[in-house]
Design a protein around this nucleic acid. Structure first.
Lengths: 155, 155
DNA sequence: AAGTAACCTACTAAATTAGTATGTTATTTA
DNA sequence: TAAATAACATACTAATTTAGTAGGTTACTT
């Protein structure tokens, strides 16, 4: 099953977008600084997020990315699905041909697990994450650090 | 997060053990044939399963492996934990130092997810799998094939 | 004594992921 | 209109992990 740095990066970046939603488009350079993710890698991830209609983009100076929908209409599952192919624990990608064309001994187990994980992550919207206290605290800390690093006074 | 062929192989092999439990120790060669898993790879997996007290072994001719406990006292989560290091979706292995020594934006999310998966897989015992109808059906099919391949008459 | 099957270790191959490098194109601002 | 910005695109490399192989040794049964 694929649930790795890529999915984590994508969710983190999308959450960063959601947290800074009011201030217009957010550039990947900003996210890259705040979340310490390689800019070029972010670009690759956002290409997929855009293809999946999770973000919209504005080119040119002052441009960047916005959420394509309101943050309560975007689930963590969608984000991970967009950058990985899927969250699927079966070896046959759900096809059921894992053992000589038939299902293997444990097919249903992994199928159930996949469904379970998907249901869990589908139930978590970006909006619900934004309102979690620890997320707020971490975001505050990060913007402090970003200010310090940029040499700008804190507003 | 690690949830891959290794964990699937381990659970499949343990389930094979559970299904053939009455007939004394089961050799890895048998499991290798039935489940189409490389013998040498199985040996590596069973080294870990043994270290984690999930199976016991009998050496020499007629030897093999048995479940170390009754099948209703062994959960899928334990098996996966034994062969992978853990089912942990955080990038910091739960340590909480994922972003400059502090937790990252999404630490709690992955922590929750890990707990969710673990709870789900902890609730599934080998015994409960043995009694699932589809498992029985697949097992029957497999032993038919094994008999056919071995050139032995079906008893 | 011979055969079996666990046990052990080191190595190789394949696949995947993470990250880099180098552009081009659209848009804004001076 | 030129310069700067930031998205968009593609190809490549490095690192890591997983899967699988190979070669043995040891314990036990027949």
């Amino acid at each position: 099953m694929r649930l790795t740095t890529r999915g984590r990066y994508a969710v983190t970046a999308m959450l960063d977008l959601a947290l800074n939603n009011e201030s217009g488009p957010i550039s990947l350079a900003d996210i890259s600084h705040r979340q310490e993710i390689s800019l070029s890698y972010l670009e690759q991830l956002f290409a997929k997020l855009r293809q999946n209609n999770l973000v919209s983009s504005v080119r040119g100076p002052g441009g960047g990315y916005c959420l394509a929908r309101s943050s309560d209409a975007i689930s963590v599952a969608e984000i991970i699905d967009a950058v990985n192919e899927s969250i699927d624990a079966t070896s046959c990608s759900g096809k059921g041909n894992c053992h000589n064309g038939d299902i293997c001994l444990t097919h249903h187990l992994w199928d159930d697990l996949s469904r379970q994980i998907h249901r869990f992550l589908s139930g978590i919207s970006l909006d619900s994450l934004v309102h979690q206290q620890d997320v707020q605290v971490v975001m505050l800390r990060q913007s402090d650090q970003a200010d310090a690093n940029s040499g700008c006074a804190k507003v």
